[in-house]
Design a protein around this nucleic acid. Structure first.
Lengths: 140, 140, 140, 140
DNA sequence: GTGGTCTAGACCACC
DNA sequence: GTGGTCTAGACCACA
């Protein structure tokens, strides 16, 4: 696991976010055992207190559970995890819709704008891919 | 202008956000004179210093300009304002795409999900409209 | 006389500066009679109080003198004017030397840098002149 | 660090200027940790808020960066700092050229005048040095 | 009356 | 102990 922090957001929040990402994308599987707090803290280069706070918070949110003697694990309660995931997605959607509304866009308009954004994004991704391939060929 | 603050974000940032909304949606027109710092502070129920900080920051961002003895005005530089608006939209788009990516969604997938969200939203809006009409009829 | 004001410096100071420039460059000659305060204020588009303050200040500095009934005049005391001019120049020199010193430049180094600046300046001026001439020719 | 303030310029601007000087002349090195806001405020004899404002502004300009719980540091981005330095020099040059222009001097003329100023300055410096040496000898 | 600056003193989240 | 935010209240130059 790679950790990267920016200066102006509480570190424990950044840790939580990055852990959620690991779980959502399946890098960390349900039931998997986490390293100890101390080890994680060392890996991340943060104060153990800070790591502890992040894990405790994630536990409160139901993403992790701890067995007093055996360590901490990614939650296995699939239903719970799904509900969690769904809630996060819902938050994203509402946040985006609300943000765009404040800028004067109706949901459908926001949708159109985001569609355009996706197209632009795919285009550049495509271009990069080609450049990468050409670069490879050039190096032969 | 109505002000509403939540406890966990600096007030001056919330003021800035709400003012941007007023300008983006055209409630405040370019060139329009704002109430004095003191008056705005009273309206919002915050300390003049806090309001001052929010306004100064918005000024730094180019949304407002001040004439030291005459008051503060919404920026008239239309081009600048458009660029501002565009930047805010871009931020929304990128924030949403990034947020969804962290939840395991590719941009196109996020688009589909948001499309579904829009449909749901329109449906409820439609339903509410009908209920409203029916309610009206019922009250006759 | 053309007036141009920027927002973040007291207007009366800007008036003073621009008047000094007029006098230093000989646009206004010693002994020349100035328009009335009211007229100047109208020309400059400022409050008569503001213009009055600027003129009073210039008078205090010895650049103008007023005859109660006849109006205000540019000072004729040549010696005084020369001393004034010299003082202003001295201020510029010292200010520049001090500013550069704070940036780590000895006077001689500052001189060299300014020499380079002059060369650059002349170059662009030259280029602009040529472009102007060519533009003229092109329009024939 | 010694602090000295004059009454007619906002204190926080004077603080900024003096800090820039410290950094430009290398008294404060890139990456170096600054004393805490409170301590600096005490040293300078100003209110912590005032010091905070000055530091925040310098941070906005990229001369400093802060880690919320560890303290404030001089920026390490050397390239950025060089650009900063260059910009300050450029400001000095343009300010001087413009100031002299208003007094009726073309850039080259200003250069000549400044050259004379440098010579005078070196002369007095030389004289002072000799007096100092003689004083030393005299005191034997 | 306007924006701007400053002081004094407080509280907070974070590490 | 650190930076950051906020309040309450004051003063100033300017128009």
């Amino acid at each position: 696991m790679k950790w990267k922090f920016t200066g102006d957001i509480p570190i424990y929040l950044q840790i939580m976010e990055q852990m959620k990402e690991q779980i959502a994308t399946g890098t960390w599987k349900p039931g998997e055992k986490l390293p100890s707090v101390r080890e994680l803290a060392v890996q991340a280069g943060v104060n153990p207190n800070t790591m502890q706070k992040a894990l405790a918070e994630l536990e409160r949110e139901g993403m992790l559970y701890s067995q007093r003697t055996a360590g901490r694990f990614v939650s296995e309660n699939e239903e719970e995890m799904n509900r969690m995931q769904e809630r996060l997605v819902q938050q994203q959607l509402e946040g985006f819709a609300e943000g765009m509304r404040k800028l004067g866009y109706e949901p459908r308009e926001a949708l159109a704008v985001f569609e355009a954004y996706c197209s632009r994004w795919e285009e550049t991704a495509e271009r990069r891919r080609n450049e990468y391939i050409n670069g490879m060929q050039g190096s032969l």
